[in-house]
Amino acid sequence: MTIWILIGGMAVLTIAIKAAGPVLLGGRELPPWATGVVALMPPVLLAALVVTSVFSEGQRLGVDASAVGVAAGGLLLWRGRPLVLAVVVAAVVTALLRAVA
């Protein structure tokens, strides 16, 4: 039962979070001062998401094999290689490091 409550609660909360901005603030022009802020939000949120998913586990900071794998994938992406290749290389490098460790 706990799991079904978790699923229902998370579904409702996620729908509400995604709807809040569009419902409350949509359909009108953004004031000019705000466009500069909005334009910078993608790099900021993505950078925060990447570093926290690589370097943290819960509330602990640390580096493990996956950081090396992600770095290898990132190098390929930087060189303009396809995303799917980069994620496969990231997974393979991580798996190999764990196999030998």
């Binding site: 996620t14 709807a19 809040a20 901005g21 569009p22 603030l25 359909g27 949120l45 998401l49």
Partner: peptide
Amino acid sequence: RFLAMGIALAPSLPAGPLVRGLQGQ
């Protein structure tokens, strides 16, 4: 973070509130 993304997206959704809420999904 989807709250922040929804706020950023909102002005680009021209329809009524219900449709905007659905598009936000």
